[in-house]
Write a protein that binds this DNA or RNA. Structure first.
Length: 470
DNA sequence: TCTTTGTTTAT
DNA sequence: TAAACAAAG
């Protein structure tokens, strides 16, 4: 019986379990997995690009363990897919949907062109819990506020995660490029030596981490997740953004714990829904990533010049505000930053330093191994106050109050700031190994005085807010 | 997913 | 005197 053959186009779904597109492809017949290095990869920031390489390595190995392979090709997606169709004679291309404007545009063109040539081009869910067009208000609009969004989805059914399918290999494999030749870590000089200690790539790593979190962490998640010195978060972000794990797998794992009476499990589901909310907004308003979601904020006098000394001090983590510098250093060294601290560094840049949040968004995009296009954009707009779900007051964090409340014994700050300490931690010192020599910083430098103090910055930002003209 | 200020309550 | 609370931005 002639079996059908499908190209499975991997993008941000680098797993075999709970993969609806892969499962459907496997059910049709032979599967040829492919990852394409197109502009969406070329344009990634240094850290996400490097992290992607680790994930691809793991996916390739996992496929080989199933008698399959990951074919790597470089070029515009449509051209590459057409070449592969020609070479292999497949009659279908399957993939998991993405929701940002660039990907949507590319994918609908691919779908149309391949469809015109008699190829079945089909997209599947899996990247989010709820397709953005399936969540709507009574009036039929998309949601702009988190809490009603949460209420509308909290009790919804989420499909039970699928097992990894068996894969049938083609009789002949098309040629593949070699992953090392792509040099995905080239922009990441600090990658191998420093960040590699913290990255945890691959589907099986994601599953063990999830297991550990559900066994131990989730019960106290609601309280511990806010304390940056503790390992109280799920640590799932780098897996979610690469698709090494699916949100549905996390949702169901949390539901099981919720039924067992684990206190933090619902809080964890709420955090998953924040991610979905970000994708919901991104899908309905793609400009979320590009500028003030509330256009009246264009009148706010943010500095947009990246060369300003405040921006340099912020990027180099020498603002003189310990919680801010600690967070920026954690990000530089580990590729991640505790969420509580993300809010603080974002607030300090956009309010105290009066610098445009897009400058910060781009720096995060370059530095975070868990960079997620929707989460990053919503997070920055939220902190800046320019986004949907805005507070009815001028949102401005006090970095001193926040440090007192969430890092009362300075454990987090001490972990990441070397200057002025007799015995700096290994992590604090590793920041100085990671940064470029051209920054000219040394752990024996004195810790700088605040470039803008908590009080002074608050006053200045409030003043700008009151005179903003809207 | 906040901060400040002023007031009340507990010790 | 500090902690808890309420209100307003």
């Amino acid at each position: 019986m002639p079996s059908k053959s499908t190209l499975l186009w991997f993008r941000r779904d680098l797993r075999l379990g709970d993969h609806p597109a892969l499962t459907a492809a496997a059910a049709r017949g032979t599967v040829i997995p492919v990852f394409i290095h197109d502009d969406s990869v070329a344009n990634l920031g240094a850290a996400p690009k490097w992290r992607l390489g680790l994930s691809l390595e793991c996916l390739g190995a996992a496929l080989e363990a199933k008698g399959s392979r990951l074919i790597l090709r470089r070029g515009p997606a449509l051209e590459v897919l057409e070449e592969l169709i020609e070479e292999t004679g497949v009659d279908a291309v399957y993939w998991s949907r993405l929701y940002d404007g660039t990907a949507q545009e590319r994918d609908s063109r691919v779908k149309e062109e391949l469809g015109n040539n008699g190829i079945e081009a089909k997209s599947f869910g899996g990247h989010v819990l709820f397709e953005p067009w399936t969540v709507a208000t009574q009036q039929g609009n998309f949601y702009k506020v988190y809490t009603p969004f949460w209420k509308s989805v909290r009790d919804r059914e989420v499909d039970t995660p699928l097992p990894a399918p068996d894969l049938t290999a083609p009789s002949e494999w098309p040629g593949s490029e070699a992953l090392p030749d792509w040099e995905l870590g080239a922009g990441m000089a600090r990658g191998e030596s420093i960040v590699r200690r913290f990255a945890n790539p691959g589907e099986s790593a994601a599953q063990s981490r999830l297991g550990a979190f559900m066994a131990q962490g989730v019960d106290e998640y609601a309280t511990r997740r806010d304390l940056p010195a503790e390992d109280g978060t799920s640590n799932m972000s780098e897996h979610l953004t690469t698709g090494e794990i699916s949100p549905a797998q996390l949702w169901h794992a949390a539901l099981r714990e919720e039924k067992d009476g684990k206190a933090g499990a619902e809080t964890f589901r709420k955090e998953l829904v924040w991610r979905d909310f970000a994708y919901h907004l991104l899908y309905h308003t793609p400009r979320l990533t590009e500028g003030n979601w509330r256009e009246e904020w264009d009148a706010f006098p943010w500095n947009e010049d990246e060369r300003r000394k405040e921006v340099t001090a912020w990027k180099q983590a020498r603002t003189g505000i310990p919680i801010v510098d600690a967070g920026l250093r954690e990000m530089y060294v580990t590729g991640r930053m505790h969420n509580r601290v993300r809010m603080n560094v974002a607030s300090y840049l956009s309010k105290h330093l009066m610098c445009h949040w897009l400058i910060g968004l781009k720096w995060f995009e370059d530095c975070l191994i868990d960079w997620d296009i929707a989460n990053n954009a919503l997070g920055w707009q939220w902190a800046a106050g320019s986004g949907p779900d805005a507070a009815p007051y001028f949102r401005i964090f006090n970095p001193e109050t926040q440090a007192k409340r969430f890092d009362p014994d300075h454990a987090y700050i001490k972990r990441w700031i070397a200057e002025g300490q007799e015995n700096p931690s290994k992590d604090a010192l590793s920041y100085f190994d990671a940064i470029p020599a051209s920054w000219g910083l040394s752990p024996s430098d004195p810790y700088p005085a605040p470039i803008v103090s908590a009080d002074e910055g608050r006053k200045r930002a409030l003043d700008a807010y009151e005179n903003r003209g809207f």
